[in-house]
């Protein structure tokens, strides 16, 4: 498979949110606006690319029986690096995402891709897989955030679209996360998956 093919595969055919149904916690928890969803997606993508690349490089140095703890340590390392960088250079993002940044460690997407892709492929292909899955995840989160923001607060990327009073606040609150994702995945089932 070509590098581009790997990336596109991650965005559409193996879309982590709509097809693989992985990483649901940040998907629901950080998408109260399009920008929040996008920041979460990009943070996860950074971890995915680095972790996939490094794990693929060192996979032969790790005995099989301890591969999961080793992968988790590598992933946790990158998560902490991303967390420290966000705290230092984008404190506003840190406030919005809060607990969900350290929790990227237990995001099943990251460990899942390490197991199913990086452990079997070369470093460059693995990095491409990280990019593809990362973009797929970011797009899904941004889309979900955009829908919730638009329906709930009448804004898109913080720009007013229609007066706020007409928005249904539920969509910004907890139930809206589940409901919006339900309809989006139903639409994805109907038009793209087949």
């Amino acid at each position: 498979m070509s590098k581009l093919g790997i990336i596109i595969n991650g965005i559409v055919k193996e879309n982590p949110t709509f097809v693989l149904l992985l990483g649901m916690c940040p998907t629901l928890g950080t998408t109260s606006s399009a920008l929040n969803g996008m920041s979460m997606g990009l943070a996860t993508m950074a971890v995915l690319i680095c972790a996939n690349f490094v794990i693929s490089c060192v996979k032969n140095l790790i005995p099989d029986k301890v591969h999961i703890p080793c992968y988790i340590v590598i992933i946790a390392g990158f998560v902490t690096i991303v967390q420290l960088l966000i705290k230092a250079y984008a404190p506003a993002v840190d406030e919005k995402l809060g607990l969900f940044i350290p929790l990227i460690v237990v995001n099943c997407i990251v460990l899942g891709r390490a197991e199913s892709f990086a452990a079997k492929n070369g470093p460059l292909d693995s990095a491409c897989d990280g990019i593809g899955i990362g973009i797929g995840f970011t797009l899904a989160l941004t889309l979900l955030g955009l829908c919730r923001e638009l329906l709930g607060a009448g804004t898109a990327f913080n720009m007013p679209v229609y007066p706020e009073q007409f928005g249904a606040l539920t969509f910004v609150l907890a139930p809206g996360a589940f409901i919006t994702l339900a309809y989006l995945s139903a639409l994805f089932n109907k038009f793209i998956k087949k």
């Binding site: 996360a177 589940f178 339900a182 139903a186 639409l187």
Partner: peptide, 19 residues
């Protein structure tokens, strides 16, 4: 189209609303 995950998520949404 709603079978499986979508209906489960929708149910969870209603439960969240109740909570």
């Amino acid at each position: 189209g709603m079978e499986g995950t979508p209906i489960a998520l929708l149910t969870a949404g209603l439960l969240a609303m109740a909570f």
